[in-house]
Simulated scan of single mutants.
Amino acid sequence: MPWFAWLLAAAALGLAEFFTLTLVFGLLAGAALVTAVVAGVGVGLFGQLLALALAAAAGLVIVRPVALRQMAQGPVTHEGSDALIGKRAEVMQEVTATRGLIKISGEDWSARALDESHVIPVGSLVDVMEIEGATAIVYPRELLP
């Protein structure tokens, strides 16, 4: 019953992964599961060790770097006011360094100019560069590079 021993090893490695969250023990647990299947089919010890080595190497060399890259990336979707950054808006009330009003995504937002020397007239199109509280910091579209 070597398949049962590999199954226990997979469970122990899976438990270790649960506490460490490094992906190493989880991939080794997967390799142990592959080896349990190989042992269950009746392959000898050499074949089991070869299956373990190949599955572990594939997991650690191929799968782990891809998974770590994916986890390191930020969220694809932005929520709340962060979703407004980069959007185009229309000036509804002249925007200066201290005050103004824009319409973005159908809502009126208080706004101020990113560059304190700019005065953006009504009807101009602007890009939302950042959000500070309930105020959008904007820059005129025609001045963008």
Rank of each mutant, 00 (worst) to 15 (best):
139 Y>G: 00
118 H>F: 14
99 R>G: 14
36 A>R: 04
1 M>D: 03
113 A>R: 01
132 E>Q: 15
134 A>V: 15
72 A>H: 10
136 A>H: 06
27 L>F: 03
66 V>S: 00
16 A>W: 04
72 A>D: 14
78 H>Q: 11
86 G>V: 07
132 E>R: 13
131 I>L: 04
12 A>T: 11
139 Y>D: 03
139 Y>S: 07
81 S>P: 05
83 A>I: 00
106 G>N: 14
42 G>E: 03
134 A>G: 09
37 V>C: 04
64 R>P: 11
64 R>S: 15
133 G>M: 11
51 A>Q: 04
49 L>R: 06
133 G>Q: 14
95 V>R: 07
117 S>N: 07
71 M>P: 01
74 G>Y: 09
128 V>C: 00
23 L>A: 15
69 R>P: 02
79 E>L: 15
128 V>F: 03
50 L>E: 01
52 L>Y: 03
110 S>H: 11
102 I>W: 09
64 R>L: 13
125 L>R: 04
26 G>E: 01
23 L>D: 10
136 A>D: 01
83 A>G: 04
96 T>Q: 05
93 Q>Y: 04
129 M>D: 08
72 A>S: 13
105 S>G: 08
122 V>I: 12
115 D>L: 14
131 I>P: 00
27 L>W: 05
87 K>V: 08
80 G>V: 09
140 P>L: 08
116 E>A: 11
95 V>N: 08
76 V>K: 03
24 V>N: 01
14 G>F: 00
64 R>T: 14
49 L>H: 07
79 E>N: 14
5 A>D: 02
49 L>C: 06
135 T>I: 10
7 L>C: 05
139 Y>V: 09
22 T>A: 05
121 P>L: 05
96 T>V: 12
7 L>T: 07
145 P>H: 09
105 S>W: 02
15 L>H: 07
102 I>A: 11
119 V>K: 12
121 P>I: 02
87 K>C: 12
130 E>R: 04
41 V>M: 00
41 V>K: 01
60 L>H: 10
19 F>T: 14
23 L>I: 15
53 A>L: 02
20 T>M: 08
80 G>Y: 10
112 R>M: 14
59 G>P: 08
118 H>T: 13
132 E>S: 15
82 D>I: 06
67 A>M: 14
96 T>E: 09
121 P>E: 04
103 K>T: 08
38 V>A: 12
34 V>S: 02
58 A>E: 07
40 G>D: 04
94 E>H: 09
7 L>F: 06
126 V>K: 06
15 L>D: 08
1 M>L: 06
42 G>I: 05
84 L>C: 10
111 A>W: 13
113 A>W: 01
27 L>M: 09
85 I>E: 00
71 M>G: 04
67 A>P: 07
46 F>A: 11
79 E>P: 13
14 G>W: 02
94 E>P: 12
62 I>V: 14
34 V>Y: 03
6 W>G: 02
135 T>H: 01
98 T>I: 08
15 L>M: 08
120 I>W: 02
140 P>G: 05
69 R>M: 06
17 E>Q: 10
